[in-house]
Design a protein around this nucleic acid. Sequence first.
DNA 1: CCGCATCCTAATAGATACTG
DNA 2: CAGTATCTATTAGGATGCGG
Lengths: 114, 114
Amino acid sequence: MKKDAKKEPLCNSIAGEGCGLKKVINIVGGKWKIMILCVIDNNETVRYGELSRSIAGITNTMLANSLKELEKDGLVERKMYNEMPVRVEYTLTDKARSLIPILLELKKWGEDNL
Amino acid sequence: MKKDAKKEPLCNSIAGEGCGLKKVINIVGGKWKIMILCVIDNNETVRYGELSRSIAGITNTMLANSLKELEKDGLVERKMYNEMPVRVEYTLTDKARSLIPILLELKKWGEDNL
DNA sequence: CCGCATCCTAATAGATACTG
DNA sequence: CAGTATCTATTAGGATGCGG
């Protein structure tokens, strides 16, 4: 008989660095990341200006920075077309799409419990 | 025939306030919350001093503040015993326990994708 | 149109010392 | 033992203007 089912801990590492959970929270944390992912997810592919107009209150600084981080973290793909004037389009990566369902669970939990 | 399955959006509100997902991320965000929840979850019930010793680098300021917030948000329960010296024990609430499985999914995603 | 550079403010986190 | 109080440092976020 087992006395206690061995539980998976939330964090593996002693100080939290290197913990997969903390990593995820860090990359989607920030003030605008979720909103940005949301708008791209709703539209499949979105231009920079459309993002800017869709997200109330965001500044160019924050939008550009957040997009760059999301791209670096592999959640967002950036495609630039050298037309005149230039056109830049953002889409979610497969990686990001695989994350969405989990975030939706989290969202539901929040709605039910907060 | 339906052209497009209606998708649940990540955020409902236009500026993100009131969005269940952002609320969750806010209450477990911060620098230490996950670690604290982890230690309590691993031990069922934990004293303040044990938390302090278990979490490398945390200060009293941050530990006390974080615990107070987690308690306010209904994730952690605080029980104080008026012995001498005093003993204070922290446990997870049912609410918090229902959140853990989702956080573990997120953790697994992070380990697989980051 | 799509950003970047700079400067500035606000929010978070940490150090240290002290108390019921 | 289990915290507070105060002060400082660090980081995140915002405003504004310029550039390819």
